[in-house]
Design a protein around this nucleic acid. Sequence first.
DNA 1: AAAGTGATGTTATTCTATAACGATTCAGCC
DNA 2: GGCTGAATCGTTATAGAATAACATCACTTT
Lengths: 163, 163
Amino acid sequence: MSQAPLACRPHNHDHCVDHALQDAEQRCSARGVRLTELRKRVLELVWQSHQPLGAYDILEQLSQQDGRRPGPPTVYRALDFLLEQGLVHRLASLNAFLGCTHPEHGGGGQFLICRQCRVAVELEHSATDQAIAQAAASVGFAVEQPMVEVLGLCARCQTREGA
Amino acid sequence: MSQAPLACRPHNHDHCVDHALQDAEQRCSARGVRLTELRKRVLELVWQSHQPLGAYDILEQLSQQDGRRPGPPTVYRALDFLLEQGLVHRLASLNAFLGCTHPEHGGGGQFLICRQCRVAVELEHSATDQAIAQAAASVGFAVEQPMVEVLGLCARCQTREGA
DNA sequence: AAAGTGATGTTATTCTATAACGATTCAGCC
DNA sequence: GGCTGAATCGTTATAGAATAACATCACTTT
């Protein structure tokens, strides 16, 4: 066991958020797509939370920020854009969204979700990708979107629960 | 590539369903839980379809069978029971349910879901299980419920699409 | 039969997501 | 600047998935 993921260690998370936003701007301008103010705010909200955020949580926070609340489609459209650009992930098991920490890789990634503290961590574990590819190949299945979401207890919550 | 999964080959599916129902009865009586008429009907419906069924699909079929339709809770309770007993799986990416083909194994299993024909196949690929276990262990995460759902094209639909 | 437990029925509601349409904004061009 | 087409966002209504809360029924045990 090498080291706990960053999300589970104390750190100045504002730096992560800033870095993610800057990186997103670069990516979008490089691709000629527009990271509008709304999309940036949604991305920021998603990134600020280590716990995956539901679309209606985002809606709630947006409306607290500026008095009036947009409709759900406004948020879902922003999220759809961010998903297309690979800047956020959607966790099907939680109906929630999470900032993508590995936008340089195309693949789906794997997610470890703590049932206690609700923190979700993204991994890029190539052996898992390969195992899935092999399993699929063995029955002639062509993988398009692998999705791995593992529910359990993070390291920190294991020690807490034992205490 | 060894062989296409049974679900993708022609076969007398009634046999599968019958076998699954008998097996379920044995399991339930062995555990001292009741596989009631409703639960058995829901299990049968889920098994009859190789395509994962939504709870409201089940509701619809139940109401067609006997005129009057129960409420959603009735179906969800039956599904909860079947999930607890490991007789069906829930696919989070589809909000749908599928008969468990490997009830002897406790683990989650892996699901290959064809985006074309919507057939879902369950695998028990130990290398994938192990890879996930290793990935989790490397960050001190204790796995409880691994979930692998792979969207793609089944072998049959690949040849169809090429044609 | 009485009591207790588990299973089901029923109604209402919450949460998640999208359809459809109108209004606005933005980039490129005259 | 002003025009135009396309993308973005706002708004309303609705679909889809799941659960809360409470009433009723059935089955077992005594």
